[in-house]
């Protein structure tokens, strides 16, 4: 592992019964870069995300995270309180279904402000200002701040989830199919937003998607997975313009031409 990566993993393996979900997977993520993990369902990409974020334990292999002070931490050897704290501050997790990550009975402002309050923010006015600021950054109307998410559309919920996640300026964000289930036009707007925010805030992100187009638009580097194995990895444009592995070629060629 070089002394620059933010997150690294070596030889991750995990099986569910006899089904191999991860087969000796290595990952490196540098600060400020977006890495896309693509593959069809069953490829192991979501499992990889869960193992890298400490939510699932591998059968073997290690995941290291470098904190702002430069210290390395073995994610799966960390104590539960520390890992939970990491998830609330330095790290973010954007779920495919925003409802899983939002409090549906709490206003938009409360949802965005929660991480700030969890970290000790105690000035109502400042919390509300930060919430307003973030709502505008994710292009949600300011006067929705006191509305319940119940009244939001799918795209708005996803943008609210992103605001709620980014409000504490995490250095690393895990994203699981963030545009899944959304209309094409809504997707485009969301992808644009993610790209702008991630680059402006210099967030490192690990993005799981089955959609090659999403990877091409957002990611600097790409990993292609098939049945738990990383079949190809490299710079996004290089891999997608000149795929070497048969499976990657299949994926690329099966994308409908606009």
């Amino acid at each position: 592992m070089t002394d620059e990566t933010l997150l690294s993993a070596r030889r991750l393996s995990l099986s569910f019964g006899t089904i191999p979900a991860l087969v000796s997977v290595d990952v490196d993520l540098w600060p400020g870069e977006m890495l896309a993990v693509v593959g069809e369902s069953g490829s192991g990409k979501t499992t990889l995300l869960n193992v890298l974020s400490g939510r699932l334990s591998p059968d073997s292999g290690t995941v290291w995270y470098r904190d702002p002070a430069g210290r390395l931490h073995d994610v799966h050897a960390m104590e539960a309180p520390l890992l939970r704290k990491l998830h609330r501050s330095d790290w973010g997790f954007v779920q495919q279904d925003p409802r899983e990550n939002l409090r549906m009975g709490v206003t938009a402002g409360g949802n965005v402000g929660e991480r700030l309050m969890a970290q000790g923010a105690r000035h109502y006015g400042s919390i509300r200002e930060a919430a307003l600021d973030w709502l505008s950054q994710v292009e949600i109307d300011a006067d929705r701040i006191d509305d319940l998410p119940r009244t939001f559309s799918g795209g708005m919920l996803q943008r609210l989830q992103i605001a709620r996640t980014l409000v504490t300026h995490p250095r690393l964000v895990f994203m699981d199919e963030p545009t899944g289930g959304l209309d094409v036009s809504v997707q485009a707007r969301l992808l644009d937003l993610i790209r702008t925010l991630v680059s402006r805030l210099r967030i490192a992100a690990l993005l799981v998607t089955h959609d090659i187009a999403v990877a091409r638009l957002l990611a600097h580097r790409i990993m292609v997975m098939q049945r738990g194995v990383v079949v190809e990895a490299g710079l996004t444009d290089q891999v997608l313009d000149d795929p070497q592995h048969a499976y990657t070629q299949l994926l690329v060629s099966s994308v409908l031409q606009a």
Partner: peptide, 19 residues
Amino acid sequence: HALAEYGVMHVKLYEDIAR
């Protein structure tokens, strides 16, 4: 309580003030 995760309580206070 073990992890002193009390953010949700402050969210409730925030919601009251907002409403």
